[in-house]
Design a protein around this nucleic acid. Sequence first.
DNA 1: AGGAGATAATTTAACTTTCAACGAGATGAT
DNA 2: ATCATCTCGTTGAAAGTTAAATTATCTCCT
Lengths: 170, 170
Amino acid sequence: MATGGKSSKTSAEVRWLNPREMKAWRSYIIASRRMLEALDNDLAGLELTLADYEVLAQLSDAPDRKLRMTELAEIAMVSKSRLSHRMKVMEKAGWVRREECPSDRRGYFAVMTEKGFKAIVKAAPAHVASVRSRFLEHLTTADQDALAKIFDRLQSHLRGQFIEEDRSKK
Amino acid sequence: MATGGKSSKTSAEVRWLNPREMKAWRSYIIASRRMLEALDNDLAGLELTLADYEVLAQLSDAPDRKLRMTELAEIAMVSKSRLSHRMKVMEKAGWVRREECPSDRRGYFAVMTEKGFKAIVKAAPAHVASVRSRFLEHLTTADQDALAKIFDRLQSHLRGQFIEEDRSKK
DNA sequence: AGGAGATAATTTAACTTTCAACGAGATGAT
DNA sequence: ATCATCTCGTTGAAAGTTAAATTATCTCCT
């Protein structure tokens, strides 16, 4: 019944997954989990999680290595609250600091310190190697293009539908 | 520097990601995160997380809807400790119960209750619909086959390398 | 039989993430 | 100007996760 299900006296006709669909879904989800786990483990040696790496990487790419909290949260795909908490930790580690925003006095910038920059520069090669060895290395260029196309499409169809999360907006 | 990096006076020659590799990786990782998030949100209406769903689904598929804790942890891809904790919650909810294993007195079976079975049977159609609308619906059958092949390959190459997790074993 | 060592599962404690609430400042309508 | 309303970012508590220690049992070797 994982997602397969068979017979069905269910009221509405549920369209269960056929074997091909099932295979695609399970292969994707299982391999992805294990791969992400491996990536995270690879990074653990450097005292980083994938999420923290992402935050630092995004910050290091920003002009002046500096971004408003909300913007950083968005591009690094973490919640505002999580970023806030994480920033406290990274600040303690000396990797980032907060800076007031002159134009909006509610706001703050997350700024990467020199030490933080050195940390991410040091971590990057290992992470890139990890991404290669866990992912890219096993893909032909055709595979890479196919994946990019497919996942871009998936993302573009994302949003809305029977989610009911953010009714605050709009 | 997300994973791109450009110049390089780094000692060892780091092979950064070229644009095609970069695109494949980012598209995959970003769409995946958002998709998983959406799936989780869709399930939240039913008071379930994807991980809990997976545990219950696996259990409901097992003979007698009954599995040893370790085995369940493995196939549902959660740690033993996490499963233990989660079981306590689900037990309180009346979805599962524990049963001693007669042949190995250290062991326990996780057993799905009738109530738990009803819960998963009720949740399944919505989850399948969610998987369709977030994932399968946007894939041709060729895409589905391609993904299955690629992710099976990725998974088969997983394991070992510069991970150093489980030194307790062997 | 005895004992070293492996294994099953749980527990504890530390840590992380989420959720809801909050304070403070911006914004826009009247 | 005043008010309601929205947004920025933080906070505290609750919930979830992880890692390491723990208990009990099993296995296998001598």
